[in-house]
């Protein structure tokens, strides 16, 4: 069994009379890429702020590398790095200077290490440019560079692909996988995109309204969640007529395509049924959105 390097026990934060996070018990194992999933406002950033000692928990505690994070702040944070919400830098300084300053707060960093981190995120050619000239995507990449600069054992990334274009999102995902596979870094990654977590994480937890809904291996949690499908078929009317004749198919919506809900094991059967009835099927894809997933697990299909 893997060693748990991040644990929260009964973690909670109350702002005024409202609990932003309540009784949260997380467990992240060494080597995990841990997806922390939840819609905007679910309490993901509040949790990350408590983990990184920016917020004082109202209840519970955080243990990192087996130590209480607040009581052993210095030793714990020397092995952790991350991005909280968005990456903000000293705009009047160059990318190099920013990394030099932020890195030196953990340990002495060499010039080669700074350029190495910048090279990984593709910003080495802009090292001497002031950050105020950077686009959002470049700042996001610089955020990742500062997070990996001191080669931490645990990297915490709060919505790292937020505001990035598809290419930028892909690059960050590849970087996360590279950190995990090549450097053995444990990555704790928050997102409101199920597809993003699914693409990179091996374990995940789902948070909604500040409470933990589900936690476990991604394959276990998402394995049975292929009941929503999006079908691009022609003619649409003909396809709808055929679908309606089959009571095991629930038509969710009809637009340019048809969204249906079926048992996963019958997906191939449905595809075949449409084709044999003369319907041209241009695409037949599992549709898995966070909303669908929440719908499923709040119906009691998943164990918390």
């Amino acid at each position: 069994m893997s060693e748990a390097i991040l644990q929260t026990a009964g973690l909670g934060k109350r702002f005024g009379g409202r609990w932003a996070v309540k009784d949260l018990n997380l467990e992240v194992n060494a080597g995990d890429v841990f997806g922390f999933l939840g819609p905007n406002g679910a309490g993901k950033s509040t949790t990350i702020r408590m983990i990184l000692t920016l917020l004082l928990p109202t209840s519970g505690n955080v243990r990192i590398f087996g130590k209480d994070a607040r009581e052993n702040r210095r030793s714990v944070l020397s092995r952790v790095c991350g991005i909280v919400e968005k990456p903000d830098f000293y705009l009047y300084l160059s990318a190099y200077k920013n990394l030099e300053i932020l890195g030196s707060l953990t340990r002495k960093v060499k010039r080669d290490e700074i350029f190495g981190a910048l090279e990984i995120v593709g910003l080495d050619s802009r090292a001497q440019d002031k950050v105020k000239t950077f686009s959002h995507g470049m700042k996001q990449r610089l955020g990742v560079a500062q997070a990996i600069l001191t080669k931490p054992d645990l990297v915490i990334l709060d919505e790292p692909t937020s505001g990035l274009d598809p290419q930028g999102m892909k690059e960050v995902r590849e970087l996360v996988l590279k950190l995990s596979k090549e450097h053995g870094t444990t990555v704790f990654l928050s997102s409101h995109l199920l597809t993003e977590v699914e693409a990179v994480a091996n374990r995940m937890a789902v948070l909604n309204h500040g409470e933990l809904i589900a936690q476990g291996p991604v394959s276990d949690l998402l394995g049975g969640d292929s009941s929503y499908y999006s079908i691009q078929a022609s003619p649409v009317e003909g396809a709808v007529q055929i679908l309606r004749k089959n009571p095991w198919v629930e038509i969710v919506s009809v637009g340019n395509g048809i969204d249906v809900r079926i048992e996963s094991k019958r997906a191939a059967e449905l595809n075949k049924l449409l084709v044999t009835n003369g319907i041209d099927v241009a695409s037949f894809a599992a549709k898995r959105t966070l909303e669908d997933y929440f719908l499923k697990i709040t119906e009691g299909a998943s164990e918390v």
Partner: peptide, 14 residues
Amino acid sequence: TSGTLRFILIRPPS
């Protein structure tokens, strides 16, 4: 305001 406080306070110095 600029958000850099978050960045320096998640580093080891107290």
